[in-house]
């Protein structure tokens, strides 16, 4: 079971600004990329203008392996937005690069999700101009 959308109510489209532009450009071409400091190589997500370790403003968008594990998850029994049909689950993932991100799972029932479950990225084209990275159980 994956997230069910009510197409009558468009879901929020992420606002793009300078700091997160590279991330969403990557998603649009079905590539999961994260910010990485050019100086010291530290990965970071969500995107930020400067490296919190070495304070360099130089950064590059580096492809992720797309693999990680569930770190935490919740199930919405009531939907906060008419575009999302409840119940649905939201997961917090820890990627191999060490960064975390929020997403949804595909092809899985909420009660089958567990902390530590290995996952990999898939890309879902939700609407015109909106592609999201989602995750599928592996192994």
């Amino acid at each position: 079971m994956s997230m069910v959308y009510d197409t009558e109510h468009p879901v929020p489209i992420p606002p793009i600004i300078w700091d997160n532009m590279g991330y969403w450009e990557g998603i649009n071409r079905h590539e999961l990329v994260f910010q990485r400091c050019k100086e010291c190589g530290t990965w970071r997500h969500p995107p930020r203008p400067v490296c919190p370790k070495c304070r360099s403003f130089e950064k590059e968008w580096t492809p992720s392996t797309g693999k990680g594990a569930v770190y935490s998850w919740v199930t919405y029994q009531e939907s906060p937005h008419p575009g999302f049909k409840a119940p649905y689950s939201v997961v917090l993932l820890e990627m191999e690069e060490g960064v975390r991100l929020v997403s949804n799972m595909v092809d899985i029932k909420p009660e089958e999700i567990s902390i530590g479950m290995p996952v990999e990225v898939v890309f879902e084209d939700i609407a015109e101009g909106l592609t999201l990275p989602k995750f599928r159980k592996v192994g």
């Binding site: 300078w18 700091d19 930020r48 203008p49 400067v50 304070r55 403003f57």
Partner: peptide
């Protein structure tokens, strides 16, 4: 660039 980046540059 973003306001956040400029703030960080000025603080640095």
């Amino acid at each position: 660039r973003s306001e956040c980046q400029m703030a960080c540059e000025a603080i640095k």
